[in-house]
């Protein structure tokens, strides 16, 4: 399924790359370490297909997710997801302390939530800026579960999910997570309309 034209698709990828670029700058200054983020790809899926695609054959493995709800010109639940093991690696690299435990501690969960919050706010803030709308962002929540559990919680099964892969590069270590934007068809239409309006400003 792809409800976007090629140029709309490319515009979205570009917007997200600007967004994660801003997030990377914020995260770098927080940890005093060069961090680069990029979005190499983007997919449109039905919610059920999305949770399957995100679990990639490891449906029983836990992922941790940071979720925020954004409302305004369109409504969406946005989830940043990592396999649990990767989240341990990421948080411990960023916090600079290593705890030999195989789950995130309470304080580490909070740090993970903040990292997700910075990334999601930057992505949505950039979209709102460039597409000239305003979005209200809720506080983030942190959850651990299968990708199915994390994606299914809000909304209905016929929702559309935009899935981005997001690459992290820090201290010679590369890892990636996913960001899923869950929205209904109306909101998806609104996203398309805003992209069209933005593109029409360039007289293409």
């Amino acid at each position: 399924m792809n409800t976007l034209s090629e140029i709309q698709h490319d515009t979205l990828v570009e917007l997200f790359n600007i967004g994660v670029g801003r997030a990377a700058a914020a995260l770098s200054s927080m940890v005093g370490e060069e961090i680069t983020l990029s979005v190499p790809s983007l997919d449109f899926l039905h919610r059920h297909d999305a949770s399957l695609a995100l679990s990639v054959g490891e449906a029983d493995k836990n992922v941790c997710g940071v979720t925020q709800h954004f409302s305004g010109v369109f409504n969406t639940d946005v989830v940043l997801m990592f396999p649990e093991a990767k989240s341990l690696e990421l948080v411990r690299l960023m916090v600079g302390e290593s705890i030999p435990l195989d789950q995130l501690t309470e304080m580490e969960q909070e740090a993970m939530t903040e990292i997700g919050n910075v990334i999601l706010n930057s992505c949505m803030g950039t979209m709102a800026d460039i597409l000239a709308g305003e979005m209200h962002g809720s506080l983030p929540t942190y959850r651990v579960g299968t990708s199915e559990q994390i994606l299914v919680a809000p909304g209905k099964g016929d929702d559309i999910v935009i899935v981005l892969r997001i690459d992290f590069h820090l201290e010679k270590i590369k890892l990636y997570g996913h960001v899923a934007f869950v929205m209904n068809a109306d909101s998806m239409q609104s996203v398309c309309d805003h992209i069209d309006r933005y593109l029409s400003g360039f007289n293409l």
Partner: peptide, 20 residues
Amino acid sequence: QTVVSALTANLSSVLSQSLN
């Protein structure tokens, strides 16, 4: 910075103890 993004962009933020 998070105050500015709340006031101008309507966004909510958390600041964790570990990173701040």
